[in-house]
Simulated scan of single mutants.
Amino acid sequence: MSIKAVVFDFGGVLIDWSPEYLYRTLIPDETERRWFLTDVCAMDWVIQQDGGQTIVEGTAELIAKFPEHETLIRAFYERWHEMIAGVLDDGIATLEKLDSAGVPLFGLTNWSAETFPYAWENFPVLRRFKDIVVSGRVKLVKPDPAIFAEMVKRVESHLPGIQPAELVFIDDDRKNAEAATALGWHGVHHTSAAKTDAKLRELGLPV
């Protein structure tokens, strides 16, 4: 089967997001900062908001556990936009080559429903996608097979009858790419644009 559509993750593939960008200024000591982002504002906590929990609820829960770090915890979402450095030019270049060749593009991202509007307003490249599944809106997160099923449903509305083997999914998180592969997609673990482009070319895509 030939590839009929490509699905992109956003953070780490197209958009340069990292809590480090904010917390380097708030916690200059690297050891202390590493502890805070591993044990307090950890990714497991972020995923709760990405899965649909409100920022108010998530923040309150974490402050209850770590009251001595209230100011730093509140900063996570109050200054969330400072964690975005911009777009990743090499990832955007891959997207643009596919788009120019007429390959249908879709987005599948773990992202809070409350913060995603900032990205939508500030990164016009997101309007290139025919549809985007935002985890916080559907209350499902990668690598749950259910969110991939939701993505297939959205793609099918544009490309009736499409099969998993006709889809590519690009994600910088290995477990998400592997989840797509386990469902019959072509999961691509994005570690560099050059390697991703090479894999896409192997699949017959014009990059």
Rank of each mutant, 00 (worst) to 15 (best):
S2W: 07
F8Q: 04
G11F: 06
G11E: 09
V13W: 05
I15G: 00
E20G: 09
R24F: 11
R34L: 10
R34D: 13
W35G: 02
F36C: 03
L37A: 07
L37F: 13
V40M: 08
C41A: 13
M43P: 14
M43H: 09
D44I: 06
I47G: 02
I47W: 02
I47N: 07
V56N: 07
E57S: 12
E61C: 04
I63Y: 10
A64I: 02
A64K: 11
K65T: 05
H69K: 14
E70K: 12
L72P: 11
R74F: 03
Y77R: 14
Y77W: 15
E78S: 15
E78H: 13
R79Y: 10
H81D: 11
E82M: 14
E82P: 03
E82N: 09
M83D: 05
L88A: 01
D89P: 03
D90S: 05
G91Y: 11
I92N: 04
A93P: 00
A93W: 11
D99Y: 12
D99K: 14
A101Q: 05
A101K: 06
G102Y: 09
P104Y: 03
T109Y: 02
N110Y: 02
N110V: 05
W111A: 10
S112M: 07
T115H: 14
T115Q: 14
F116G: 04
Y118R: 12
A119V: 13
A119I: 14
W120Q: 15
W120K: 15
W120Y: 09
L126E: 03
F129W: 07
D131Q: 07
D131Y: 01
V133N: 05
V134P: 00
S135F: 04
R137I: 08
V138H: 11
V138C: 10
V138D: 02
V138S: 06
K139F: 09
V141W: 01
F148D: 00
E150L: 02
L159I: 15
L159C: 00
Q163T: 15
P164G: 05
E166Q: 15
I170R: 11
D171Q: 06
D172L: 03
D172M: 03
R174V: 10
K175Q: 11
E178W: 03
E178R: 07
V188E: 06
H189T: 06
H190R: 04
T191K: 12
A193N: 07
A194L: 04
K195P: 01
T196K: 08
A198E: 10
A198N: 03
K199R: 15
L200R: 13
R201N: 08
L203F: 11
L205A: 00
V207T: 10
